[in-house]
């Protein structure tokens, strides 16, 4: 176990491991998203109140869940980088940030499209929506700070500290629908109870969420490989790879 973790810190070994894991995750992501999309768009029943417009949930919920998970992953990677000085962890945090920002934007955008038929407005200054908007700016801040420092060790540490500070927003987003009485509905999935919707509705949603996670993992592995090559371009094994 420990040797495995220690090996993970080696760029060369991590590069080949990412290469080996990647196809499995791509296939899983493709299958899950394909099955989930067809099931959710064609076969699951329309909602008795919202009709067919509720189907936006199949994009909205996975992207919103990912928006938070990616930031937590970045925070964990940042902590690992600050404590054990493992460069791979910083590279992983680097490649995850733009994807997380994209997911946050997708969550906000799909939510605002959904808001028109159900709430009658594109945007409302509701606690969940505002917290999510703050999340988007935190992602942009992390990316901008990295950009300002360029690819060096100092910038990496600064970004890691900012990510760890920014993670305070995650519980605020998570519990915003509990603490405040908001327009946004409570969480769809909880670990402790069954969803309030029929199985034919939540099963495809669960499949979509898992599909988004697999897609995130596959994309991170793919981009991590690129990042390793870019940062280790002076080492002998990368140059041997290029020849």
């Amino acid at each position: 176990m420990w040797t495995f973790i220690h090996k993970l810190g080696s760029p060369k070994w991590c590069y080949s491991l990412c290469g080996r894991l990647q196809p499995g995750f791509w296939i899983a992501a493709l299958l899950l998203i394909a099955v989930g999309s067809v099931w959710s768009l064609a076969y699951s029943p329309p909602d008795y109140q919202m009709g067919n417009s509720y189907r936006i949930i199949y994009v909205h919920v996975p992207s919103a869940i990912l928006a938070q998970s990616v930031f937590v992953s970045m925070a964990i990677a940042s902590a690992v980088f600050l404590i054990w000085k493992i460069k791979i962890a910083d590279m992983a945090a680097t490649v995850m940030a733009p994807f997380g920002a994209a997911m946050t934007f997708l969550g906000l955008f799909s939510g605002s499209l959904w808001g028109v038929p159900t709430w009658g407005t594109w945007w409302t200054w509701d606690a969940r929506l505002t917290a999510m908007l703050i999340q988007l700016f935190l992602y942009i801040g992390v990316i901008a700070l990295r950009g300002a420092y360029g690819r060096n060790d100092q910038g990496a540490k600064a970004v890691a500290v900012l990510t760890l500070v920014g993670v305070v927003n995650i519980p605020i987003i998570k519990y915003s629908v509990v603490w405040w009485n908001t327009l946004h509905q409570p969480a769809t999935f909880t670990l402790t109870s069954r969803p309030a919707m029929p199985e034919s509705m939540w099963m495809p949603l669960l499949i979509m969420v898992l599909g988004f996670y697999c897609f995130f993992t596959a994309l991170t592995l793919y981009r991590l490989r690129n990042e390793i090559i870019r940062r280790e371009s002076r080492t002998r094994w990368v140059q041997a790879l290029a020849e």
Binding site: I140, G141, A148, N169
Partner: peptide, 14 residues
């Protein structure tokens, strides 16, 4: 650092 500082800090000020 000025503009960057506001980008980093304002979300946390909300």
């Amino acid at each position: 650092g000025g503009v960057l500082l506001s980008l980093l800090i304002l979300p946390l000020y909300i």
